[in-house]
C-alpha cells in the first residue's frame, strides 16, 4: 500500500476546518450555523486521527471518541435551545435575537 504524506492529510483537515469556519460566520440560519460547527468538529477529530496514525498509537482514536460524544451532547442541547428560540421568537434568524445589545 502506498503511503500518504502527513502533510496532505493535515492540510485536508485544515481546509475542512476553514470551510466550517466560513459557514459559521456567514450563515444566518441558526441550525445551519450549528451544522457548520459540526464540520469544524469533524475536521478537528480528523486531525487527531491523523496524528494517532502517524505515531501508531490509539490515543488519537480515543480522543476522537471523546470529541464525538461531546459533539452529540452539544448538538442535543443546542437543538433544544433552538427549538425554544423558535417558540419564543417564531424565527430562526440570528439577527433577530440581539436583545443582549449594548
Amino acid at each position: 500500500m502506498s503511503q500518504i504524506p502527513v502533510h496532505y492529510a493535515m492540510l485536508l483537515a485544515a481546509i475542512l476546518f476553514a470551510i466550517g469556519l466560513i459557514g459559521v460566520l456567514s450563515r444566518r440560519n441558526i441550525i445551519l450555523m450549528l451544522m457548520s460547527v459540526e464540520i469544524m468538529l469533524n475536521a478537528a477529530g480528523l486531525a487527531f486521527i491523523i496524528a494517532g496514525s502517524r505515531w501508531l498509537q490509539p490515543d488519537g482514536q480515543v480522543m476522537f471518541i471523546f470529541i464525538l460524544a461531546m459533539a452529540a451532547a452539544e448538538v442535543s442541547v443546542g437543538l433544544a435551545l433552538i427549538v425554544q428560540m423558535y417558540q419564543q421568537h417564531k424565527t430562526l434568524d440570528v439577527n433577530s435575537i440581539n436583545k443582549m445589545k449594548g
Partner: peptide, 26 residues
C-alpha cells in the same frame, strides 16, 4: 469570513508544513 478563514488556514499550513515530511503507514 472568507478572508479570516484564509488567514487561519495559512497559519495552520505554516504549522503543518514546518514539520518534516513523514509518510503515514497504512
Amino acid at each position: 469570513p472568507a478572508i479570516l478563514s484564509l488567514v487561519l488556514f495559512l497559519e495552520l499550513t505554516y504549522v503543518v508544513l514546518s514539520e518534516s515530511e513523514i509518510l503515514l503507514q497504512s
